[in-house]
Amino acid sequence: MTEDPRGFGIYIHWPFCKAKCPYCDFNSHVRERIEEEAWRASYLKELAHYAALTPGRTVSSIFFGGGTPSLMDPATTEAVIDAVARAWRVANDVEITLEANPTSVEGAKLNGFRAAGVNRVSLGIQALDEADLKFLGRQHNQREALAALDLAAGTFDRFTFDLIYARPGQTPRAWEKELARALTFAADHISLYQLTIETGTMFEQSHARGDFVLPDEDAQAELFEMTQDMLGAAGLAAYEISNHAKPGSESRHNLTYWRYGDYVGIGPGAHGRLTLDGRKLATRQHRAPERWLEMVAAQGHATRQSDTVPIEARIGELTMMGLRLAEGIPLARFEAEAGRPFAACLDPARLRRLHEGGFLETRDGRLVATDAGRQRLDAVLGELLG
């Protein structure tokens, strides 16, 4: 079959953390004891199930996310990577990323993950300020964060790290100083997220009680613009709203998501998108770790949902994901997903208003959100998709 230039990814969800961060709404759990051999065997079973559904594909990326995958035994990581290579063809330049926290215990395992086949690590630094690390519920301190960045740089040719900004009380001057320090460690990629209050998190409760106040909209905009300017000057262009990279160093796995390519999701709560016989399937695995293990043992997978995505929903998903990217969406992609011309995919009056407002552009055969549009993308999508 002709290979999809958007790639084909495998996502592996490790659902365990040492502690639940108060801002996090991911499917993560704290357990005193983990039967890792059972988890290893279950991952391999679920991989085999999806490999049978997607024969002949070439894997361009593998991503170990969580949770905290660096709590995993590197032997489990290696077993999964080997199983992927047996089940599918693997690109010569396959990107294999593992998310890690910068505690000293996890940092000491980076060499083991590299030996297992991981060639890119993503560190959850989140802040370089001691007080804010505690506020964010992180298990590491500033010293460990900086040591982990040095270790990652010496262990992997490619690495990235995350920072959260627009934190309570954070001033532009303080963020400028912190970001400048972070950039001395950045190699070719960095992710920067504004702090948001997610439903169901500990922060949702404490924020509602008035325990802390986020910067107002004007302050957030000033911090965002400062971030864009500093990253641009450092040669790390914003290829996606929150992700910056030197040309050619973008996250290949995440680009598959944003370009609305296919990917398999393995592990508790993992989502997938697969195109089979012209249909786009949305898959979702059972969220609860113990129930997921039981289901995989009983039937070889723990797929809770495998639904055909209707045409209108495909258009919506393609739009929501693709407009996050600086490159935008090829107009031809709308026709490929919907089976009808671009002009018949989105409401022309809404498109015209957003073009006239300076939030969207159509250029070089692509629909693109302008800088102003990407800064207000939720509002733009609300107007565009109704």
Rank of each mutant, 00 (worst) to 15 (best):
E3F: 02
D4E: 07
F8Q: 07
Y11F: 08
I12D: 01
H13N: 12
W14P: 06
C17D: 15
K18L: 06
A19Q: 10
C21E: 09
C21A: 09
D25F: 08
N27T: 05
N27P: 04
E37M: 08
W39T: 06
A48N: 02
L53G: 04
P55A: 01
T58Y: 01
S61R: 11
G67L: 10
G67N: 10
T68G: 12
P69Y: 11
P69V: 13
L71M: 14
M72W: 07
D73A: 14
T77P: 07
T77C: 03
V80S: 13
D82M: 05
A85I: 05
A87V: 04
W88P: 01
W88E: 05
A91R: 12
T97S: 12
E99P: 08
N101Y: 11
S104G: 13
G107N: 15
G112E: 03
V118D: 05
R120I: 05
R120M: 05
S122N: 09
L128N: 06
L128E: 06
D129N: 05
A131S: 09
K134A: 13
F135W: 09
L136Q: 12
L136Y: 13
R138G: 10
H140L: 03
Q142W: 02
E144I: 15
L146E: 00
A147E: 06
A148K: 13
A152M: 04
A153K: 13
T155K: 03
T155N: 08
D157N: 11
T160S: 07
D162L: 09
L163H: 07
R173E: 05
A174L: 00
E176N: 00
K177P: 01
E178F: 00
A180K: 07
L183R: 13
A186W: 01
L192G: 01
L195T: 02
S206L: 00
R209P: 06
G210P: 05
A221E: 11
F224H: 06
A233N: 07
A233G: 08
E240W: 01
S242Y: 00
P247I: 04
G248M: 03
E250F: 02
L255G: 07
R259F: 06
G261S: 04
G261C: 03
D262T: 00
V264W: 00
G265R: 06
G265A: 04
A270K: 01
A270E: 05
G272Y: 01
R273A: 02
T275Y: 02
T283K: 02
Q285T: 14
Q285I: 14
R291Y: 12
V296R: 08
V296T: 11
G300I: 03
G300Q: 12
T303M: 08
T303L: 09
T303I: 06
D307S: 12
V309G: 12
P310K: 12
E312F: 14
L318V: 12
T319D: 15
M321T: 13
G322Q: 15
L323Q: 13
G328T: 04
A338E: 15
R340I: 15
P341I: 02
A343G: 13
D347W: 10
A349G: 12
R350S: 13
G358L: 15
T362I: 08
G365V: 13
R366D: 14
T370W: 13
A372N: 09
G382I: 11
L385E: 14
G386P: 04
